[in-house]
C-alpha cells in the first residue's frame, strides 16, 4: 500500500516537473520577484510585493493547474485503479506529487531571486522565510481544494468555474465582507470576532502570518488587549500555522473519501 503511494507520487512528481506549465510558473515567479527586488531596491517592499503574489497568484495557479492535471490524468488514474491497488493510496500519491511540484515551483521561483539578492545586500531572512512558508502552505491548501473539486465533478468547465469562484470569494469578497463587518459593528467589542474571522480564510491566514513579522510596529499601535495577545506573541503565528494545516488536511481528506467511494 505504502509502495503504491510512493510509486504514484514519484511518477506524478517527475511527470509534473517536466511539464512546461510548472516550469513557466516558476520562471514567472522568478521574473516578477527578481524584477521587484532589483528595480525596487528595498527588500522589505519586495517581501510585501511577493506576499501579494502569494495571495493572488498562488491560489489561482494552484487551483487551475491542479484541475488541469487532474482531468488530463483521469484516464491514467482509471487505468491504475484497474490494478489491485488501494484507492486511497493512489489518491495520496497524486495529491502529494501535485502539491509538492507546485510548492517546489513556487519555492524556487520566489526563493532563488532572494538568494541571489542576498549576495551583497542585507536581507531579513525571518520575513523572507515566512513569505516562502506562507506561499508553500497556500499551494498545498489550494491543490487539495483543486483535487476535491476535480474528483467531485465530471465536467471540467463547471469545475473550473467553481474554482475561480472560490478563488475570488476567498481573495476579494471575504475581505470586503470582513471590512464591512468591522465598520458596521465598530461600537461593539468585536476584536475576538475579527481575529476569529480572519482565521477562517486560508488566504487571510497566510497574509496575517506574514504581517505578524512584517508590520509588527504598526500592529502594536492598536491597544486592544486581544489583538496584542494574539499579534504580540508567537501565539498568533502558531495558531495561523495550525489553522492552515487544518485547511490542508480537511479538503485533502474529503477529496480522498470522495475518490475512494465514487463510481467512475
Amino acid at each position: 500500500m505504502r509502495g503504491t503511494t510512493y510509486k504514484i507520487f514519484k511518477y506524478t512528481l517527475s511527470d509534473l516537473l517536466r511539464s512546461r506549465w510548472i516550469l513557466g510558473y516558476a520562471l514567472l515567479f522568478a521574473a516578477v520577484s527578481g524584477g521587484i527586488l532589483y528595480l525596487g531596491d528595498q527588500p522589505t517592499q519586495a517581501v510585501v510585493s511577493v506576499l501579494n503574489l502569494v495571495i493572488l497568484v498562488v491560489p489561482l495557479v494552484s487551483l487551475v493547474l491542479g484541475l488541469m492535471y487532474h482531468y488530463a490524468n483521469r484516464d491514467f488514474a482509471l487505468l491504475v485503479l484497474t490494478q489491485p491497488v488501494h484507492r486511497a493510496s493512489v489518491f495520496r500519491g497524486q495529491y502529494l506529487g501535485l502539491s509538492l511540484a507546485l510548492a517546489l515551483a513556487y519555492l524556487v521561483g520566489a526563493g532563488v531571486p532572494f538568494l541571489l539578492y542576498a549576495i551583497g545586500n542585507p536581507v531579513d531572512w525571518a520575513q523572507v522565510g515566512l513569505v516562502l512558508l506562507a506561499g508553500t502552505l497556500v499551494s498545498l491548501v489550494f491543490t487539495a481544494l483543486a483535487l476535491y473539486i476535480g474528483v467531485a465533478h465530471d465536467e471540467r468547465v463547471r469545475a473550473l468555474g467553481l474554482a475561480i469562484g472560490i478563488w475570488f470569494s476567498l481573495t476579494m469578497i471575504y475581505d470586503s465582507l470582513l471590512l464591512l463587518f468591522i465598520i458596521l459593528a465598530e461600537a461593539y467589542p468585536i476584536d475576538p470576532w475579527v481575529i476569529g474571522l480572519s482565521m477562517v480564510n486560508p488566504v487571510d491566514l497566510a497574509r496575517v502570518m506574514v504581517l505578524l513579522k512584517l508590520d509588527t510596529a504598526a500592529l502594536m499601535g492598536y491597544t486592544g488587549a486581544v489583538f496584542n495577545k494574539f499579534l504580540g506573541s508567537n501565539l498568533g503565528l502558531l495558531l495561523a500555522l495550525l489553522a492552515l494545516l487544518l485547511w490542508i488536511l480537511v479538503p485533502a481528506w474529503r477529496a480522498q473519501r470522495v475518490f475512494s467511494r465514487r463510481d467512475f
Binding site: N52, M172, L179, D215, A218
Partner: peptide, 17 residues
C-alpha cells in the same frame, strides 16, 4: 485611524485596490 481592527486587512488585495 477610525477602525483600528481593520489593521487585520493590511496588504489585502482589497485594500490595495
Amino acid at each position: 485611524e477610525n477602525y483600528p481592527q481593520a489593521l487585520v486587512l493590511l496588504h489585502s488585495p482589497l485594500v490595495q485596490l
